[in-house]
Design a protein around this nucleic acid. Structure first.
Lengths: 175, 175, 175, 175
DNA sequence: AATGAATGAGCGTTCATTCAT
DNA sequence: TATGAATGAACGCTCATTCAT
């Protein structure tokens, strides 16, 4: 792939990611192209269609989240690791990602990545339980779903009030 | 209003409510008409435009929720009242409602109803705090926001595991 | 025909005539019905379709103009008769009438009435020429066309400035 | 602008001009597109909406008429200049132009051009009066209105019989 | 006979996608 | 290869016409 082609591809991806976060799934191809500083034709050279472009963003998103999550596996305390993961999610268009996964995506990586990420988080959650920071009555697999709820509304941060309250439902306060 | 017109109007409202719950705000008038078993013209006889139809559904939704909420004011224990309200929300397209309120609706009832409902819930939450069932460190006004998070993903029920866990973040266990 | 049916029919015709004069050919059936104080169904009981209603108005209009024109035949001076006919036209939706005649009307009376009216006016014009009030170099058949031009813009009156100027092209001033 | 785009734009304008002359303001975008041999989308690439397209035609029309009128200012005899201007109007969709100007157009050029053209014609008319070819009892500003009447019915030509008769109302025959 | 609710073809417009330049 | 002009299916909406009440 030529240097300019690579530059274009990444300009498109960045623009789409930005706009998807701002305006949700309703972004138009024309707008993405303009924001990326290229013509629409260039979008279609890099991605066969709209869905492919969005799914590509979602894959990138999840890959990055997978990396961030992997980096937290094994760290102590595990509870702090979970909070850092939540913080990491803030910048990601996870609502778009969710919606794509739900509607039978073309790319198999999407559900696969989700599964992998969830498995890691489950593992970290189990560790947090062993360390006494996570309520023992919550199955670790359930923690993932709660995090989803906490994170998928826009702008969740582990240290804002709302998210704190939601997460505290999971937390075992050290007495 | 004629009998058939009333039948059609309710068919339209039901169909729109169903589709709005399934596909979000992206429902087309054509699809609603087909699902209701009427022509598009009939939609426009009953509602001046698309937005009016959706806002009407939202108003109905919130009025029903207001009634349900009013019925719970003063009941004891207040915590149980909150759980019943959440259960009531399951069948309602609150995501649509939220999205309409955010985007400067024509109908002033929409924000008004939201405010009124939130005030009542805040009141019930304060009572739950006095009764020792709700964590004292959460401002009652904040409870509303947590319930929104718990409820606006599809299919929240007070007795499913996820919602339970989220709500338990707010609950003061009787020791 | 029952008395109320006759009343309705004339209410419809009057309303349509009024609206056609105000808003041109773009009147909607709904608006005519509302202005006549009846339901649309009643329009369609009396007239098979929109075109039929408009053509009916046009026929009435031309019949009335024919009567008015007949009343002027033989009066002296013929030039004054022509001016009275022009004045009479002011209240008539002749632009609508013209446009219907042009576009292959269903009702044969329309072109027939036009021909008949034109013949009478031609006759009166010839008389005005013999009386020395109408320029001798204008074929009497041409006078009709000039009157059309003078009359078909809205609000022509024989005594307004513009029409005067136009008509004076036909007039032989008595020296 | 690309060669094909320029070709298309002019095809659209021509087609619209033709159809507007035939069917008046009631032309549909679909029909214009078909007559121009392009898709509807192409119309909307060149003009933001229907009104913009029609007003654009009207502006072009009036600009051309302004040029033609300017070319006649100062020519002698002024009466012949007026006749040439009328002849020029034949090919223009002035009825459409009139109707757009009446209904609060977006483009300010429309009323401006009309005013400018009328001023020039008034000037030429005054000259024709000084030269003794135009009746002295008609205010020059009125001449414009008579020309409008003469010209706005389709196919006015200074040398057809009808227009001749109408204009002769303004003419002072050299004895 | 009268009503007005229902119908659906058609219009103006948008936007994902294709293709000439 | 990149561009953006062209395409046309689909949407929101209107209105002449039909039909249940």
């Amino acid at each position: 792939m030529r240097a300019d082609a690579r530059r274009n591809r990444s300009a498109i991806t960045s623009a789409a990611l930005l706009l998807a976060r701002e305006r949700g799934e309703a972004v138009s191809m024309e707008d993405i192209a303009r924001a990326a500083g290229v013509g629409v034709g260039t979008l279609y050279r890099h991605f066969p269609d709209r869905r492919a472009l969005l799914e590509d963003i979602a894959v990138d998103t999840l890959r990055e989240l997978l990396d961030a999550t992997r980096a937290e596996v094994g760290r102590t305390p595990a509870w702090a690791a979970l909070l850092r993961i939540v913080d990491h999610c803030v910048a990601l268009p996870l609502a778009l990602t969710k919606s794509l996964i739900t509607s039978e995506p073309e790319r198999p990586e999407l559900p696969e990545l989700e599964v992998e990420i969830n498995a890691l988080i489950t593992k970290i959650a189990a560790k947090a339980q062993r360390e006494g920071d996570l309520r023992a009555d919550v199955p670790p697999t359930e923690v993932v779903r709660v995090l989803n709820v906490a994170v998928c509304r826009c702008g969740a941060r582990a240290d804002d009030h709302l998210t704190r309250v939601v997460l505290d439902g999971l937390h075992t306060p050290k007495n």
